[in-house]
Amino acid sequence: MSSELLFAVVGALIFTLGVAGTVLVANLLRRILAFNLMGSGAFLVLVGLAQRGGESDPVPHAMVLTGIVVAVAATALALALLRKQHEMKDSEEELTEIDDG
């Protein structure tokens, strides 16, 4: 097995881990992490599989480069939504506490 193929297999493993994590984990921050693992696994499969013959291939490199930048933007948006949800939960609890008092 060439090391490129090895990394493609590792990518498949990480992708599977990410899928299972995204489904099973309840905490939203952990879910964002697991989703990012899925992305990284897919990138490894893309690049590893494309150059298992040994030569490097610029097309998947460019695709993965684009993918990494989009992934960080998606992560930041998800984190913004998570923080908003947290803030709203906080103010909701404050409101109910005032009602109880």
């Binding site: 090391s3 690049v47 590893g48 490097s56 490199h61 460019a62 480069l65 990494i68």
Partner: peptide, 17 residues
């Protein structure tokens, strides 16, 4: 990425990922 001879991705991953 360095091992996969993809220095472009390695640079981006180090700075961004």
């Amino acid at each position: 990425w360095c091992r996969l001879r993809a220095p472009d991705i390695a640079l981006a991953e180090a700075a961004i990922g």
